[in-house]
């Protein structure tokens, strides 16, 4: 796989991150996502990490990158599906994901985004 799929769900975009991330893929995703946000005028981005049984500083940096990019383009970001063991590990690793909201699953993430967008 040489691209991370970006799915459109109404006025939101869904990015599903798989295990084998590397630098090139992260760069491509950055480009693809900014193009997609402007093309669709998306108001929110959901990052699904439920497939990840490990989140390290590299993935953490990428999540931060996506959320920063979304913010610049006036869209909100929610990380969904973080496994409990991963969440506990992230705290000890020291990765705070500051400014990034989380939700248990895609459905709840969509709800959160809808509320956010409406209250704007």
């Amino acid at each position: 796989m040489d691209r991370i799929p970006i799915l459109r769900m109404g006025s939101f975009l869904l990015v599903t991150i798989q295990v084998d991330m590397h630098d090139q893929l992260a760069m491509t995703l950055q480009d693809d996502l900014s193009a997609k946000i402007s093309e669709t005028s998306a108001k929110g981005v959901l990052i699904d990490i439920s497939a990840l049984d490990v989140v390290d500083s590299f993935i953490g940096r990428m999540i931060g990158m996506i959320s920063g990019l979304s913010r610049i383009m006036d869209a909100e970001t929610v990380v969904v599906g973080m496994q409990p063991a991963v969440a506990i590990t992230l705290v000890e690793l020291g990765l705070t994901l500051s400014g990034v909201s989380t939700a248990l699953d895609v459905e709840r993430g969509m709800k959160l985004l809808r509320e956010r967008v409406q209250s704007q």
Partner: peptide, 11 residues
Amino acid sequence: VDQTKLVTAVS
């Protein structure tokens, strides 16, 4: 949880 911590350190 300990598996996940160790594997994250490995990464």
